[in-house]
């Protein structure tokens, strides 16, 4: 990480900033945008979007996440390498979730132990572990 991307880094050790302070206006604007999106998320829960509900919710959450990453986490001013590493992790999260989910859909019908229970409160709950994945 010794390659310096900035022209002013010749003065770097002489008190010139390598910091990129976010302006207060930007921070406040991002905060209000995030709050607004939260209100939208809560509001949309009272409408019925059917199958699109999860997609809607995740879409709004992802917009919020991008705002936080870009501005609060300074990704737009950061070195691209850091952003590549971080965003790259989500690729692997996607692979992980998709493969595991697909596998569990094909192999296990239900995650619950088969218990004959007509009186639910009395039945002894089994050790239900996160074992949907094989």
């Amino acid at each position: 990480m010794s390659a310096h991307a900035h022209s002013e880094d010749d003065h770097g050790s002489e008190g010139h900033d390598f910091a990129h302070p976010m302006s207060v206006q930007t921070l406040l604007a991002v905060f209000f945008a995030l709050t607004f999106l939260t209100v939208i998320t809560v509001a949309q829960a009272s409408f019925d979007f059917g199958a699109f509900e999860v997609a809607t919710v995740m879409f709004i959450a992802t917009i919020k996440a991008v705002l936080v990453m870009a501005f609060f986490m300074h990704m737009i001013a950061d070195k691209p390498f850091n952003a590549i590493i971080f965003i790259g992790s989500f690729v692997f999260v996607g692979l992980f979730v998709i493969f595991t989910l697909g596998d569990s859909m094909m192999t296990s019908g239900s995650f619950e132990p088969v218990v004959e229970e007509l009186a639910p409160a009395v039945a002894e709950p089994m050790e239900v572990k996160v074992d949907g994945a094989p």
Partner: peptide
């Protein structure tokens, strides 16, 4: 991932 599996099932 656990959440996704159980919610899908």
């Amino acid at each position: 991932c656990a959440y996704a599996i159980f919610r899908a099932l």
